[in-house]
Computed example of a mutant assay.
Amino acid sequence: MKRQSTLIKMYFLLVYADHIIDDKELLAGKKMAQYEKIDEASLQKEIDTLRNTDHSVLYKEVIHGMKQLCINEQVRFVAWLSIIANADGFMDEREWQLIYKLYSKDLHLSLADIMLKQKELKQHIKKSQGGLRARA
């Protein structure tokens, strides 16, 4: 459960980083939740509780939670952030700063690993969308 909470906090910080809530970012967040087996009600409930929490406190909690995870999960979670930040076709500078600080300065993750995982996740999203279209 702590793993999911960390991911939701990361998602919240990213979506609210530029103070613009974009529908495409929210849709990408739903795809992330499906992939990570987080039910939509739990996602929304936790986001609602985070709205009044100081973002610097949340960031510290995210770093603490991420450091409890294996490297593969850390890389996957940061890859999700990149996918969500780009979902609206543009990564805001504040979104990029958050992602960069997280993966490079605080977690010391490989950008190449993140980009590779991001590519894998995008392929998974395309496959799941294709399957949905084929049934419609």
Score class of each variant (00 low, 15 high):
Ser110Leu: 12
Leu102Pro: 01
Tyr35Gly: 01
Leu43Cys: 06
Leu116Lys: 10
Val78Leu: 06
Ile84Asn: 06
Asp48Lys: 03
Tyr103Ala: 05
Arg76Asn: 08
Val57Leu: 14
Lys30Asp: 04
Lys126Thr: 06
Gln74Met: 10
Lys31Asp: 04
Cys70Gly: 12
Lys2Ile: 09
His55Lys: 14
Ser82Phe: 03
Leu132Pro: 01
Phe12Thr: 03
Ala85Trp: 02
Trp80His: 04
Leu81His: 01
Ile84Met: 10
Leu121Gly: 08
Tyr35Ile: 11
Leu107Trp: 03
Ser82Tyr: 05
Leu26Gln: 05
Phe90Met: 12
Gln68Asn: 15
Gln123Pro: 00
Thr49Ala: 10
Ile47Pro: 00
Glu46Asp: 13
Asp22Ala: 14
Gly130Gln: 13
Ser5Gln: 11
Leu102Glu: 00
Ile114Lys: 02
Ile99Cys: 00
Gly130His: 12
Val78Phe: 01
Gln129Gly: 08
Leu111Asn: 08
Asn72Asp: 15
Ile114Arg: 02
Gly29Gln: 03
Asn52Gly: 03
Ala85Pro: 02
Ser56Pro: 02
Trp80Asn: 00
His108Lys: 11
Ala17Glu: 01
Ile84Asp: 01
Phe77Lys: 00
Gln97Glu: 14
Ala33Val: 04
Met115Phe: 08
Ile21Tyr: 06
Ile20Gly: 00
Lys37Tyr: 08
Ile83Ala: 00
Leu98Met: 08
His64Tyr: 13
Asp22Thr: 07
Lys37Pro: 04
Ile63Met: 06
Lys67Gln: 11
Gly130Cys: 11
Leu43Val: 06
Gln129Ser: 11
Leu121Cys: 12
Phe90Ala: 13
Lys2Cys: 13
His55Tyr: 09
Met115Glu: 11
Leu7Tyr: 08
Thr49Asp: 07
Tyr35Val: 09
Lys122Thr: 14
Gly89Val: 01
Arg76Tyr: 02
Ala41Phe: 08
Lys60Ser: 14
Tyr11Val: 05
Lys67Met: 13
Ala33Cys: 15
Tyr16Trp: 08
Lys126Glu: 09
His124Gln: 13
Val78Glu: 02
Lys126Pro: 00
Glu61Phe: 09
Glu61Ile: 08
Asp106Met: 10
Ile114Phe: 03
Lys24Ile: 14
Met10Leu: 10
Tyr100Pro: 06
Gln4Leu: 15
Lys60Gln: 09
Asp18Gln: 05
Lys67His: 10
Cys70His: 11
Asp92Gly: 05
Val62Ser: 07
Tyr59Thr: 05
Leu14Trp: 02
Gln129Ile: 09
Glu46Tyr: 07
Tyr59Arg: 10
Ile71His: 13
Asn52Trp: 01
Lys9Ala: 15
Ile114Met: 02
Val62His: 07
Phe77Tyr: 15
Ser5Arg: 09
Gln44Gly: 12
Glu120Asp: 09
Ile47Arg: 03
Gln129Cys: 10
Asn72Lys: 13
Ile8Asp: 02
Gln68Leu: 10
Arg94Pro: 00
Tyr59Leu: 14
Asp54Trp: 09
Lys122Asp: 07
Ile71Tyr: 09
Gln4Glu: 15
Arg94Tyr: 13
Gln129Asp: 15
Val57Ala: 12
Glu25Tyr: 04
Glu95Asp: 15
Lys9His: 11
Met32Gly: 01
Met1Val: 12
Ile114Cys: 04
Leu13Gly: 02
Ala17Lys: 00
